[in-house]
Design a binder for these strands. Sequence first.
DNA 1: TTGTAGGCGTTATCAG
DNA 2: CTGATAACGCCTACAA
Lengths: 359, 359
Amino acid sequence: MRQSRSGPKTDTSQGRAAASDRRSVGLREVARVAGVSTATVSRAMNNPEIVSADLRARIDAAVQQLGWVPDGAARALSTRRSQTIGAVFPALSIGEFARATHAIQSELARLGYTLLLACSEYDPAQELSQVRKFVERGVDGLILVGQAHHPDTERLLHQRKIPYVNTFVYDRSQPGTCVGPDNHRALQMMTDHLADLGHVRFAAIAQSTLNNDRAGARLEGMRHALALRGLAARPQHVLIGKWTIGEGRALFRKLMQTDPRPTAIICGNAHLTVGAVLEALAMGLRLPDDVSIVGYDDIEVMSHLPVPVTTVRVPGDRIGATAARLLVSRLENKPFSEPLEAEAEIVIRSSSGPPPKDS
Amino acid sequence: MRQSRSGPKTDTSQGRAAASDRRSVGLREVARVAGVSTATVSRAMNNPEIVSADLRARIDAAVQQLGWVPDGAARALSTRRSQTIGAVFPALSIGEFARATHAIQSELARLGYTLLLACSEYDPAQELSQVRKFVERGVDGLILVGQAHHPDTERLLHQRKIPYVNTFVYDRSQPGTCVGPDNHRALQMMTDHLADLGHVRFAAIAQSTLNNDRAGARLEGMRHALALRGLAARPQHVLIGKWTIGEGRALFRKLMQTDPRPTAIICGNAHLTVGAVLEALAMGLRLPDDVSIVGYDDIEVMSHLPVPVTTVRVPGDRIGATAARLLVSRLENKPFSEPLEAEAEIVIRSSSGPPPKDS
DNA sequence: TTGTAGGCGTTATCAG
DNA sequence: CTGATAACGCCTACAA
């Protein structure tokens, strides 16, 4: 029928590399060695059960002998699937994200996917450009952090129909799209804990909420909980800075120089928390007698500091693993029924207690 | 000439999806819209300067209008280059590796490459399988940790001619292949520091050296430095465990129950160090008066603990960035002249001092 | 169950 | 400088 089967295959050898010159093992060589067609080899690799046992054996032997490794690019081109997932995190060396990265990676590996990783440095424009690059690289899906993305990011993903999941946030109005804690509620709970102990003068040491909807939601959660009791943190008691231990120390010290002093201090991330606690100890303050400090993210050191720290536990690894599974089930059109909200848990330790009597 | 230009293109439409049905924008549609050939579009994208200005403009307009994004898989298939680098780390949530990952990622992004990340969990077999998967995915190069790999890993990489660099090690006998500190020497220096202060009874709290050549080299460095002075750590003073803070505490406590007690304790990683220091403080010991503790990896908390910790600084970020640049220059056949040894620096703080008088 | 051959979207060669 | 077209290596619809 088709009039095509004309020349090319007969090797006129003028391409960039004549087929006959190619020494690199390909499906073709395997097929030849095994004495079968390329289609059969392909099937033997992808659906072993539909190939007769003896052929399968011959093929496996040939594969072994030639040390053939399938070519992902060719497969991706043909199937329009790369078995690759991209993840863009604001930072990689922050505990919660590092744990999540690890969990995502191992979960994806288990499911036959590979992880492409990038970092946005808390900048939506960078996030966009990383996402763009991932799209060009042909990722099947994406894992992002937070809900606030560059409009073009959402547009691009929508138009290319690339599924993605937002992590470290939970928004019940967007079911099935995000995996994480309800940041607002987490801090509301933490604030309630302190208020229930009798605190009235609250302070916050937080990282910038610029381009960080999670941090913003947490601050709002605190504000909301306080407002419900007719309270509010004084402006000079709400300090924003970088997310380092040193910054935590500096901001804590600054807080202690105000008058009146706050009696309860809520920190916005693990580094700031560790800094605040260590500075308090360095200043000779007793926790929680002189002041209560609570943190965010239950990294291991929280329970080992001289005064174990009350903190919000964020199951970064569970979030990552769940996000990975969710994304893959969506890609493979499988149902998914695990809970997506990582209920934030308040871990109460010794750094929080009733406010000092004389305050 | 070529007798080929026969049928297929004339659309007999019997493939899985007839060319005419494909609505997805490709180079072809762009070419059609711009009224040029696909070759010209391709050139306009990759070598703009060799295409006349007006065509370039028309092409850019068409690209814009269609929202075309080049297909990485197709490009990879055609060029045999994926612009992708794979990195396999033993763990991702350890400070030094997290920092390195970050640095690698941003350096690669700058150079036009994308990072594929995986984790070996300190298991050569897992490393091998991750490397295999990366090879299938078509990475252009690899970044690994340490020098000890599964023999098949090296074989595979060698036979596929895939360049790779070993990080966090420095071996002067393998020039150009590894980037990192000389672990042996680092610990030798640290041990010398303590010995010079007068210590004689040394102890080590380390992670398993199984499948961890860096940790092994560090332990050897200590042994060697001691041997040069005719000293050695007693067997009961060399404790091996997991790399957590809790473990560091437990092992330190165990050490303090021996008789005689060691006066200088060398920890094998950051977590163990923090644990040991915090346990010492919890036990009411004074550092360095009662005992000296030194660590490995100068993470931020080291300088902020109640007693700032003497430690080895490992510039994970510099190592990562250098490794990335080295690998890319090799891929692009460019010369590379930056130093590959990340000279380990001993940061002396208050946790180390002369041994107690009465010892 | 197995073989045949076209097509996935780009690049690059070669001829104008 | 531009156009035509053969690979790139694999998958899969279709035929046998």
